[in-house]
Design a protein around this nucleic acid. Sequence first.
RNA 1: GCGGAUGUGGCGGAAUUGGUAGACGCGCCAGACUUAGGAUCUGGUGCCGCAAGGCGUGGGGGUUCGAGUCCCUUCAUCCGCACCA
Length: 1090
Amino acid sequence: MGYEFGKIEKKWQKFWKENKTFKAYNKSEKPKYYVLDMFPYPSGAGLHVGHPLGYIASDIYARYKRHQGFNVLHPMGYDAYGLPAEQYAIQTGTHPEVTTNKNIEKYRHQLDRIGFSYDWDREVRTCDPKYYKWTQWTFIQLFKSWYNKDIDRAEPIEQLIKEFEKNGNLYIHAACDEVESFSAQEWKAKTEKEQQETLMHYRLAYLADTVVNWCPALGTVLANDEVKDGFSERGGHPVEKKLMKQWSLRITAYAQRLLDGLDKVDWTDNVKEIQRNWIGRSEGAMVSFGLSRYGEVETPPQPSPGGREQEPRYYNTDARTWKALKENVKDLRKNPTDAEKLLWEKLRRNQTGHYIRRQHAIGSYIVDFVCLKKKTIIEIDGKIHKYQKKEDKERTAVLQEKGFTVIRFSNQEVFEDIDKVVEKIKSFLDNKIDEEEISSEEHSTESGKVLPPGEDLGGVNVFTTRPDTLFGATFMVLAPEHELIEKITTPDRKEEVEKYVTWAKNRSERERMTEVKTVTGVFTGAYAVNPLTGKEIPVWTADYVLSGYGTGAIMAVPAHDSRDFAFARHFNLPIIQVVVREGEEPTDPATWEESYDSKEGIMINSGFINGMTVSEAIWATIDKLEEMGIGYGKVNYRLRDAIFSRQRYWGEPFPIYYKNGMPYPLDESELPLELPPVDNYLPTEKGEPPLARAKNWKTKEGYPYETNTMPGFAGSSGYYLRYMDPWNDNEYFSKEANEYWRDVDLYLGGDEHATGHLIYSRFWNKFLFDLGLVCEDEPYKKLINQGKIQGRSSIVYRIQGTNKFVSYGLRKQYQTQALHVDINLVDNDVLDIEAFKKWRPEFHDAEFILEDGKYICGYEVEKMSKSKLNVQNPDDLIDKYGADTLRLYEMFLGPLEQDKPWDTKGIEGVFRFLKKLWRLYFDENDNLIVTDEKPTEQELKVLHKTIKKVRSDIERFSFNTGVSAFMICTNELTDLKCHKREILEPLAVLLAPYASHIAEEIWETLGHEGGISYVPYPEYNEKYLKEDTFAYPVSFNGKMRFKLELPVDMQKEEIEKKVIEAREAQKWIEGKTIRKIIVVPKRIINVVVS
RNA sequence: GCGGAUGUGGCGGAAUUGGUAGACGCGCCAGACUUAGGAUCUGGUGCCGCAAGGCGUGGGGGUUCGAGUCCCUUCAUCCGCACCA
């Protein structure tokens, strides 16, 4: 009979189920331990041998912890929303839920056969209304929250509204969109809709026009982590950028905390690095550059360096007002009236002999034209600017109070006789005395704007991580999408710039990525003023600058940035070296082959920072910029907010309805908002999401519900919390349950979730932490990423144009074509020719060229997939060898975290081991042969050596060496013909986490009741491991030559003597001098001779 | 380009702190038992060499009595991010 795994495994799986052996208790005196597997998406294909790898490892650990007296939470569930079921629904009309449930059943059956110790009573499915009620609930909380930077956590939105009513948004530091400042009065004056619109800029779940990754083939948007190289991760369809109104989660508010949290979790460096990279923190400075369209004018007036007194007096308003007026100025400049345009042509560029600016902000006004030197304002009447509702009279009075003279002309005058108007202005200005002094409070510099000379175009901010190189900035580059481009481009360059911008915008992401090395760009005709040197630098636009990062504009430092360098070389722009390697002399950048990008060196050609090191200079420059009010230190993140809408059917509906076009959350009592039936799973003709097809998709009051659904990561972001208390209908989870289970002690899953699930889930948890709902701010204490199991495909070689196949070793003699062959037709690389002929009709008459009478297949290690015919189904292996063998073999394959190819042939060895183990306990007739005889020292040593090894291997998740230890132990006990209870009973317990079924069977046969799962894990006793002697390896000059058995307590001097006397040593000593003898107790003896 | 990881027999892989390189398993070779073997058992198996011995952890250099392990350098493969300022 022997080892009947089939019978045994069935029996014990039934036992576990009936006795609820693996039930976890929310109240317990035992310490808790939470072991979690990343729950699977139940695909139609079922499990292949790669899927259970992590589950087996975590199961071993969970079982080990139970043996150690822990109350173990080890749950399983299903990430049930996903594209395949929906695609299938579109094709066949089958409701995705039907498909999903069918797949879940299949998964469950497969999982059950492997003998996992899950507490199945806690199963969750993300598509279950009882579950997604809480996904929706969390969304509502996000909607009702904002992020307060002052206390660095989320707060209820009511808090914010209260503050708005008190002080407007003047003292609010929030993680939010760009919002104009407003006072309490202004807040109160807003309509409800306006207030809602304003709040939307602060909410953690918000609706906004967003540039999204639109996938036309899938008909939905995708999150950044769902897009790989410009194609959708699922399906590989092209993805394009599109502006759409979408829900987003303000995950960027948590960027720093997500980064900091990584320091306190026990994860692999790899995943931590991926997350750090994804968050992409960089420190630097925001610098304001003034912009001007100086164009054809010879030399721009040079502001004298340094010295606040001599700074040009361009600011005639304070910073806050300027901020408020800025947009208006931009707008007005963009849309001048015809009269203004006409007059400007006559006034610009000193034509009158006086320097005149247009649309300049003075106080809270924007005046049409001004000559600052003469403190004279020229206004054109007879038009109503959108933003100027006040009476001109009042305006004049105020401006006069500030010391300005206002002269007015009507539109008509300008149109009828412009020369006369210009003449009047000229003579007025000619006769007016220069107003040298402008009252000091008018241009207090606390954070004023430096506006450059020339035609004033406002300013532009750039982000740089290298403010130290500001003196080396010789040009500026704007992203083609940058809003200023249109404004600043000179007429003569307009055509060229527009052509370029259009071209750049229409290039796909894909093209932009693949053509990284081509340098393209055009000059806009505008200039920016380097705020430290006062020098004008040309402004270009080029697509190597991304609109999505920083401000979409850069200062280019070609000497110290490789991309800027390439650009400067290509377009022949100046390159100034400002950093030199310590101890080296500056060289002519014209001779350089590449830029010097290093963050180390000494500053040169850089004014006040000359001689400083780079890091000193960075800080000095930031200080200076802040002091001058033209820049500040700034931390920038690459992380983007998570787009949360999907135009799909099979997902959680948003608990949102629309009133007057504004979204409102459902009352919590109305949750869950269940997914409605639809007649068709495609978008509507109008392009609305499938939910728009649902009948009566509106509230009782008739307000329409949101028709988008949530993305895949919504349901998986908080599932580990729901496992703690999955039966709770009133709460996500009870406070008690959360305070008991707290966080996941061990989390196992693939590292493909590093930028998706693992970031979103941490964000979700931190948000709930801010709400006081969860007690740990990091959800996953320890994370292990199991490696992927790759397929091992078998290859046959067909001679081209024939139906003749040549064996692997002889294939080079022919022109062959490599074909994948089903791995089930191949054993140990030998092809079953008869089976192959029957496999496909076209091979029925195939002929073969054999080697040694066999057809040997080649192999290829690649992804396990149906098309490669290399998928190994665990069910087949369980049928043939049993679950215990499968469990052991998956662990035996290699280190858990390493990718490794699957090769079924090795499984025999593990199977043999279990059979051999069985024979320690039973004879050929299945009679128990275990005796109560006292074990020998040697036997005890074998056992305790194994206990020590297996324990330490489990602790460090080295399961492959653990299996090997069991094999060694079994081999040694077999050699010793040991059948003693005192040895074999602990061995069964030791093995139980790995090969649970056979261990249970042995345990029961040995006379125990109630199962093995909670029997204390064996402890090793050092006294059995003690050795009296040690076989010292003796080496000469580091080469091991022979072994010498010596007592362990022998003194070094004695050992040296023994070594020299040893017979085998003579050969190596002969004719040589002994220089030195090194003795490391219980390790090695090394004799140095020469 | 940046970051992370990995290179050890025919194969999967051991070697926890610098101390016997190749544990354990597969495969292969030989033998035993068998009508048979794709069952079971026993022995062998890094490479070269009849042997003594020599050579061996991707390559080169170094530290050390001693290096797969530490340092420098270089190559290759895999993964992640990528014109991120």
